[in-house]
Design a binder for these strands. Sequence first.
DNA 1: GGTGTTGGTGGACACCTGTCCACCAACTGT
DNA 2: ACAGTTGGTGGACAGGTGTCCACCAACACC
Lengths: 236, 236
Amino acid sequence: MRMIWLMDDQPVALPTRTERKERTRRAILDAALTLTEQSSLSALSLRHVAREVGIAPTAFYRHFTSAEDLGLALVDESFSSLRRTLRDVRAAQPSVGGVIGPSVEVLVDRVRADPEHFGFISRERVGGLPGVRAAIRRELDLFEAEIATDFARLPGAVHWSTDDLRTSANLIVIAMVAAAERLLQGPGTPAFEREVTRTTTTQLRMLSIGAIQWRSRPQDRGGSGRLRATDDTTTS
Amino acid sequence: MRMIWLMDDQPVALPTRTERKERTRRAILDAALTLTEQSSLSALSLRHVAREVGIAPTAFYRHFTSAEDLGLALVDESFSSLRRTLRDVRAAQPSVGGVIGPSVEVLVDRVRADPEHFGFISRERVGGLPGVRAAIRRELDLFEAEIATDFARLPGAVHWSTDDLRTSANLIVIAMVAAAERLLQGPGTPAFEREVTRTTTTQLRMLSIGAIQWRSRPQDRGGSGRLRATDDTTTS
DNA sequence: GGTGTTGGTGGACACCTGTCCACCAACTGT
DNA sequence: ACAGTTGGTGGACAGGTGTCCACCAACACC
């Protein structure tokens, strides 16, 4: 920010060039986000965006080379906050069971706080520009891998196959994506949000119970009916 | 079909008017399906469809009142075959565990046999025309309800809460939708299909194990570690 | 055999689309 | 103080869009 002083000694903030560029860049991103709310990025009109922002259509190219470029920026934005928050949550909780509740709550909070970004992700995740779709899948895969790593740290996990780790982590990611979608498509009432939170938590708990049972099976087929303790997964 | 006989006594099939109408209707549906393969229905150009079919743009309105109308017809088409097939599978299998394998195989087969329809569903399920989205959700909800009913028929299910029935059925539907999407986005190789089949089957088995454990909990909290027999869910 | 119905035509309408271009004013680094 | 850089302008381009309209040929029915 560049300061200049007028005659009456009042400092006036004059935005520097890079600041102004960043500002219209933001405006473009925001406009794109609101305009794609009802359709998809591939159907986004560049002129529409320009009109919304208040610039000439061609000025768009000073910031993004294409709609796909814009989309990738939006993907990055959308995930960065969620990724950070969830990582914090998982780092703070020692057990897998303990991490479920807070994780779902974080997800619901983030989606509520920023529906446009998550709506964008949910829409572009399937069908849209291939590059954007790929970027989103990469983020979700990363997320899945982190969950699998968490699982691998569980006591007794050394004997679980890598495949099954990924498979169960995948289902968890799927359930969370589905929860976000339900949240976005349903009414924004607190009651509905609470219901989605409850349902999703239940689903993840069921799942982790099943996963733990499942994996003890291959090396203990036909053994006694006695199963591993599952306290980890029920402590909220 | 109206038959006419030429001089040399060869019967020639002359399509009646309604048959011809039905034929171009089909052509429109097919064209719309291939044209939306890369984008969404809301971005579908009516003129493009007409060109593909080989009719004048305005002739479209003789068959559908709008793009949404077309979309609803496609939703109906897409689900009708799957719904029928899955219902047969579930009717033929007495146990929930036994139904998982065949169900997943049916799903994979149907998706492979008709990727255009399922791609359409997967894309329009989120973001697109609201009416179409609602129709798809209705179909999935119906499917979820049927699964919940199956669960309710399990021995010992009388004590399970309706909510938990729906919650677990919901996750099953979610996992199957996700499987279809993975199948559609990944390579069409048989190896990949087998892997998706295996992964999804595992997920559904884990899930049903977890669900069974879960529900026995509320009325038996703090009991022995002994759990219900789960043979149902492991017999393929 | 005549008549109403109907699937399809083709032109015209007003408007919207992405991208190219020359141009400009003002901020920046020296 | 000056020259270069840069964010933004506005017109023009070739084309694409949905929808309206009058019109037609052929099928269906009585």
